[in-house]
């Protein structure tokens, strides 16, 4: 019975582990965001077939590769599994901080990245996890403000500005973009590297030196304060212990009163003494395979080699 219970517990733990691993996978998908859409395309980018149609750009906000194969894209909240992104296509593995572009042309037979709906009549767009239930990201399409060949997207790739903890500040998150940017950054693709920006405000490295040295000092000062106090506390505790243990003795030398140099000197002296005298570190007895000259030795005594036989006590 106990064995059965153990087995059951083991299986349960295993299941929890598997479930948590699956959950991790789901977490990866949760890093995907709908990033930019173009509803009506008459004079913008063409697909591989030379057609111009609306498109949807997804963005992987994480720093790990996410496989979106098996996830769903839909324009119908009542039908979350409207278009399943085919599994097994290497192109559905989206690299860290990279984009993926889907053509909303109602021609899914043209390949993985062609959806079975278009955006002209869609009111909403949803990206759904591979379980077919969890909505990872959704966006309402404001047809009134979107004109031909103009894209509607996040101002910063993958970034959601929140009005409060639960509500999305849509006006500061999404808007009409200056230019369409399929498969590339909505903002900052041409921005300067951080180092160059920093140099503009600090051409001689003075601010950098001051800031960085402050941080280095701060780290080590905190460490210094912590260990200064730990040391003090430790000395206090040891003193109390030593005082308790040797309440009657005349002089107590605590470990802290003895410097490390004293220990080092004692060890050094002992080491050189033993080295010079070729002394053995076990003083009174020497293990040897040579015959012992004495006739009697505890090492050869049978008394010492006999063992008592185990017996049951009654």
């Amino acid at each position: 019975m106990k064995k059965m219970m153990k087995k059951g517990l083991l299986i349960l733990l295993l299941l929890i582990f598997v479930a948590s691993v699956q959950d991790l996978g789901a977490q990866n998908m949760s890093d995907m965001r709908i990033n930019e859409i173009l509803v009506t395309n008459t004079d913008d980018f063409e697909d591989d077939f030379g057609n111009k149609s609306g498109w949807i750009e997804l963005f992987n906000t994480s720093y790990g590769t996410v496989d979106i194969g098996g996830c769903y894209i839909t324009n119908d909240p009542e039908n979350l599994t409207k278009y399943m992104i085919p599994r097994g296509d290497v192109l559905t593995k989206i690299k860290p901080r990279q984009h993926s572009l889907f053509w909303a042309d109602s021609k899914p037979h043209r390949g993985t990245f062609h959806l079975n709906f278009n955006l002209d009549e869609s009111k909403e767009l949803l990206f759904v996890s591979s379980d077919g239930r969890t909505i990872v990201d959704r966006i309402e399409i404001p047809h009134s403000i979107i004109t031909e060949n103009v894209s509607y997207g996040r101002f910063k790739d993958g970034v959601s500005v929140m009005a409060d903890k639960k509500t999305l500040d849509i006006t500061n998150t999404w808007g009409i973009l200056e230019r369409t940017s399929p498969s590339t950054n909505n903002f900052g693709a041409d921005k300067e590297p951080p180092g160059m920006l920093f140099m503009k405000i600090d051409p001689y490295g003075i601010i950098m030196a001051f800031t960085a040295m402050s941080v280095v000092f701060l780290s080590l000062i905190i460490l210094y304060l912590v260990f200064k106090n730990i040391g003090k506390y430790n000395i206090k505790i040891s003193r109390k212990k030593a005082e308790k243990a040797a309440a009657g003795s005349k002089h107590i030398v605590t470990e802290e009163e003895t410097s490390a140099e004293v220990f080092a000197a004692i060890s050094m002296a002992l080491h050189s003494f033993y080295e010079d005298n070729d002394a053995h570190d076990v003083e009174n007895t020497i293990l040897t395979i040579q015959k012992v000259t004495r006739n009697y030795s505890p090492w050869s005594s049978k008394i010492y080699t006999l063992r008592e036989r185990p017996f049951k006590s009654r």
Binding site: G195, M199, Y204, I206, M208, A212, M213, L220, I221, K228
Partner: peptide
Amino acid sequence: SNPKLMLIGAAAQFGIFGAYGIALAAGFAP
């Protein structure tokens, strides 16, 4: 045993940032 010595370890890092400033002045990118 003597945590105040940590601060010396911090001070010597000034070499890094001093050289950073000189390298910037010499025309290296940040």
